[in-house]
Design a protein around this nucleic acid. Structure first.
Lengths: 210, 210, 210, 210
DNA sequence: TATGAATGAGAGTTCATTCAT
DNA sequence: TATGAATGAACTCTCATTCAT
């Protein structure tokens, strides 16, 4: 997920953003903000354009259509996250620590960009067949990281060998993911990452041999 | 979740369903099927009507609008589930067993009605403000069951006392929920409930004192 | 115009009207009330039926369609008025007195039934070609009465001979008609007929030789 | 009433009008033509658009909705007329002459644009509460001109002092208005303004002291 | 006669997308 | 590249009318 959110993404933009150049990222940020606020289907391309401070038509110079904006936003954020995550996890030998670190990064990434978090938690689960497939593939990629760690932990004897590795990985992702959802839906805006250790404790407790 | 799904909900219905009477449940079932297939926004009321074997206008004799159909479907299913769940859990004294049973019921309920499961996993997480609030309330109700069990388990000393009860409950729900999502997105149609014990093992392992 | 308005026409009817029998006039009265309130196009047949205390379908046992209800209401009232008017005017030999009496009857008829007045002033001027023709014919009939009086007055030398009789008749009708419109649109509910003499004075003043 | 009516307003336009530019007045003219022909409720926005030679959606770039088109058409025409009328009447000191001139302008304005006249005579008297209020206000404004003249004439002793000024003004307007209605409903298309003197003669005859 | 559930055609309006400038 | 006016397909919902009971 993008480390920083461009400043105009939250404002009306039409004013501040004009002339900053770099329309592509501005449109992307605006789109994430609008999708977060209204949801994909209720978001109008005109909303995105005006928030980005560009003309409606300009959006189509950078993106084929509305769906592609959403997908690009998700892809960009997801790929950035995965690159970061793979790099970091690579340096950690303990499978348990790796999962703890992954939970941490996951919550940090989304906790630092609420709009993006909303889009991930809400809009990613659309049922356009295409989008479903699309997000499914991301999920698989993410889960691969988790399953690797679990498998390795089982081989090393620190994770319970009888656990179905696939299901365990789903539990890990599901738990972390639900923490994000819960945060997104909450009224108060507590720091999401602060929950990382607590989640990791529960899940790792469930994975580790007694 | 509805005790029985009328058989025509899966088929084209337009033919077979005609004149079977009781249009209300037929429309509801058709709606769930169409929502599952296309998603709420892409589902046309005409699709629902034709699948239910009724005229477009007939839908509006039973429901105020499209949104009300979705909400009714979700409410009906959710309330039926909660009633069942409360009744069953009431008879189980062990908190761990209660959670195990809840996971089981959860997966059974959705595993026996794929369309409904798709609607719950996908459409419930839309971002219409109203729907968000609406589903949030259901979530809270469900989580109350989980939190009660966790709290009691902590008091009895069988669950780790240092765990944040709210986060732990989220982990439980998140894990079970993700198993459903995974099943919904999966190519093959394995019996969902078969995963119940495995999930429960992971989470209970994480909750129980060593 | 009908001498009396059936009592249920103003109320919700569904209660009081039931079982009184005589559904035909009840539907007619209800229709006039609903047309007056919402206008022809915005009036729903269901509104009329419920106000008349009958089922929607029952309306169609008495009237071919919505338009026929309006036409029947107008026709009935208009014919009743014309019959009365012809009978009364027949007994008055002075053309001036005849016009004075006609203005009086006109304002009395509509002033005693506001709903009907609204329908006459507003709905009669629709532009469905059919309805236009239809109301045009009524107008001609009414104007005939006026023109007869004017013609006779001119022959007798009490009305200015140079006046175009057709235009003068239009002036008479227009003046009286406008008094009704003004009353219909007014906030306060003054007795319409009280204006009869004043209007007659103006117009007769314009007609009479000096 | 609009100073000039774009020529295509009367024709089918779909062909000739394309690309003539200035879509706003074209839509307005087309709307008046369609409203005149079918009446507001039966007029479809698609009719207006096609007559104006624009796409359906284009209408909504210029007007919020169908009602706004009607109101704009009426307002524009009415305000133009009132501006003209006030300017002209200002220069006439004789109250009688002023009324004669007003009748003349009234009949000229509507007589030179039959579609607009139809809309004024028919559609303006609908019973949408909003429209009623709206047209009522116009009426008041117009009547103010008439009442001013009458009041002044009474003060100067040339109009009968015993006449109720409000009722007299209604008579004036009603008479002129009915001449227009009569013309609108007539089969043959005689020049409307030719009736101006005749009407003025009747009404002024009724107003003036003998 | 009476009912009212069911029908389905129909229309206002929105908005993603295009394209002439 | 950038614009934004224009397009027109699409879709929800209403309501006059019918007809089995």
């Amino acid at each position: 997920m993008p480390k920083r959110e461009s400043p105009e993404a939250e404002g009306t933009a039409t004013t501040a953003a004009r002339g900053t150049g770099e329309k592509y990222p501005r449109i992307l940020d605006a789109a994430v903000a609008v999708f977060a606020e209204k949801g994909f289907h209720l978001a109008r391309v005109a909303d995105i354009a005006s928030r980005a401070g560009v003309a409606d038509g300009t959006v189509y110079l950078y993106f084929k259509n509305k769906e592609e904006i959403l997908m690009t936003a998700i892809n960009t954020a997801f790929n950035a996250f995965m690159t970061d995550a793979r790099a970091e996890l690579h340096q950690i030998s303990s499978p348990a620590e790796r999962l703890r670190r992954l939970a941490n990064m996951h919550l940090h990434a989304l906790g630092s960009n609420r709009n993006l978090a909303v889009v991930f938690q809400m809009e990613l689960r659309q049922s356009t067949r295409f989008l479903t497939t699309f997000s499914h593939e991301h999920m698989v990629e993410y889960l691969e990281l988790v399953r690797d760690a679990i498998r390795e932990g089982q081989q090393k004897g620190i994770f319970r060998p009888e656990l179905n590795e696939k299901i365990a990985a789903n539990c890990f992702f599901g738990a972390v993911d639900e923490i994000v959802t819960s945060w997104v839906l909450a009224e108060e805006d507590y720091p999401l990452a602060s929950a990382a250790d607590a989640v990791a404790n529960v899940i790792l407790g469930g994975l580790e041999t007694k």
